[in-house]
Amino acid sequence: MSNSDIYLLTTLLVYTGVAMIASWGLDLQIGETNVLNFGFILFEAIGAYVTAILSLGPDTANGGVQQYVFGAALPFPVPWLVATAAGAVLGLFMGLLTLRRLRGDYEAVVMLVMALVAFYAVSADTSLLNGSEGLSLIPAPFQGLVGGGPNTSMTYRWVYVAVVAFVCLLAFFVVRRITSAPLGRALRAVRENDAVAMSLGKDAVRLRILVQVVGGALGALAGAMLVQWVGAWAPGSWTYPETFTLFAAIIVGGRANASGVALGAIIVPGIILEGVIFLPSIGPSYLTPALQWVLIGVLIIGFMWFRPQGIIPERRRRFPALALPGGVEQSGAIQLVDVEPRRS
């Protein structure tokens, strides 16, 4: 493989890994719990900005070409960890503000609007995060260990891919742990019917806020990994339609199934959005991105019609029947309870 092929391939892999982690975070919300977070991209944004200001150093560095608050140069992986925590705190804030009172579409719209408020505020205020120009020259992590940076060393690019893959694996186990535990059952109970879940003693509001926190942390972690790979971050990197790329990944792959969501992330943000870098360009420069978005729209509608459960559907879960109270064993043929996941 030539260096330029490695360059493109590693970029594709990093983007896919980042999208995968973000999609898992969003799927915990929309897939497992039915919290329709149309402003999810805000988590990626906060993760990226926190990582950027914690690795750039004070804003007088680089000749003061950009302005931002609280610059520090902390060693890897501190910025990623702080970014993840910041995503969780933001999730808690959004959850407390919206999920306690608002239901359904209002909640979705308010989250979308929060992402927009942040977008316009960050764009307008140049002293906060350098406004609509955004931050650049964000240093790549662990360059000293590898002996080179993303633009000089192909080894560095593979090491970064490996780190992303490792974090993906970690995130996968966290998500699977949550969804297969009793907690996951409670989340799905809230999704199917929150009144019933509450009548069984589950605090639906708390559970929804919880997925907002965990999903927010994952989204911010994805943003952190992305920004140190790209080296720049501006409001144009997190416009609200970006959230719908993740929606498409979840719908195509299969909601409420971590493997399905991973597959969706490989197909939609990976192959469809980033894979074209391997193809020769056709027509004017705007044509390919425009057609990509049209294709994503067609895929969403096509999957919603022909295979609403996605490529890898949610698992049909079987639970051993509970023993009746008073130590009486349940008799008869029914030993297992089938739980059918809800369709679309």
């Binding site: 359904g104 579409d105 929606f247 719908i251 991105p289 425009a290 057609l291 978005w293 969403i300 919603m304």
Partner: peptide, 28 residues
């Protein structure tokens, strides 16, 4: 019987299709 939110997702997809078809035809 697609749910209310399913319908929102479908209209978002329609939005993407129409908007970017306009870009593909008329340019940016």
């Amino acid at each position: 019987g697609t749910s209310f939110f399913g319908m929102v997702v479908i209209t978002i997809a329609l939005d993407l299709i129409v908007e970017y078809a306009v870009e593909a035809i008329w340019g940016p």
